[in-house]
Design a protein around this nucleic acid. Structure first.
Lengths: 146, 146
DNA sequence: GTAGCTGCAAACTCTTTGCAACTCT
DNA sequence: AGAGTTGCAAAGAGTTTGCAGCTAC
């Protein structure tokens, strides 16, 4: 029943809904659809893409609502907002920390983790006299030809 | 005469002008001012800030020209464009690779280098079967209290 | 002389917001 | 009932662009 993502994190389909309820948000039809679409998205969709997907379920959903919903989820720390390099923001459910490598030839996004990287980053910050509270890291590259 | 930055890179005041000439660009009064302002900026100014600084020298310079000039410099690889987390793009002359740590309490930007980080990043990409061509990395944190 | 550059203003893209109607709780 | 939410359309912020005139080469 409980699905897991590629890193083994448990995903329940209504996780976002639960958290939203806990946060005191009202559960409207629109939010149900938007959250479901978000949870089912394995890529990193833009607001417009999310809105299109949501509209396939309920064509009355407006992009303003999608923006507002994503804003709330972002405040609650439930989704991650990325900028990549095109102009519009991209979102994903926060399943725990991982990084992105964008294939410059196909646009495909590869996700990965690296404890070594996390450790090194914290060490660098400490060496500079800082406590790290957040960081961004993205790679761009193409498949190695052999 | 030759100044150096904090990492010891040599800076000559007309480096950007030289490169622009080599690239076949015309050297207009506006470009001279914009390039000078860019080279003298030790921070990471937005387009608007750059435009304001340029206007203090020549008040007729328009923001459209600043955008166009930065676009050209970016294409030539002479300036770096950053997004940080506020909405507008920020620029700096590319003095060679370094990273930024943004102090979340003061907004101050600390620059640093790390060969170890570069090596690790390349290794991670290779392990994923990729040749890295670019990456972004930014840290956010606050000073360690002792 | 002419290709390239400029300022201006309009257009564009992405995002936010005021408002009146509506709906979850 | 009432606070929160919605769709719409207008407004904002940041950036790009068409154009007529100007300028470096």
């Amino acid at each position: 029943m409980a699905k897991t993502d590629r890193f083994g994190y448990k995903i329940s389909m209504s996780m976002l809904l639960q958290k939203c309820t806990e946060a005191g948000l009202k559960i409207t039809d629109q939010r149900k659809v938007i959250l479901k679409v978000l949870e089912e998205s394995e890529d990193h969709p833009s607001v417009e893409t999310l809105c299109e997907r949501a509209r396939q379920v309920d064509s009355s959903i407006s992009i303003a609502t999608v923006y507002r919903t994503l804003g709330l989820l972002n405040e609650l720390g439930l989704v991650l907002k990325h900028d990549f390099k095109d102009s519009s923001a991209r979102f994903e459910v926060d399943h725990g920390h991982h990084y992105h490598l964008v294939d410059t030839e196909t646009g495909q996004v590869v996700e990965f983790q690296s404890e070594e990287l996390v450790a090194l980053i914290n060490k660098i910050a400490a060496d500079l006299g800082y406590q790290m509270v957040d960081h961004t890291f993205e790679m761009f590259g193409h498949k190695l030809k052999k």
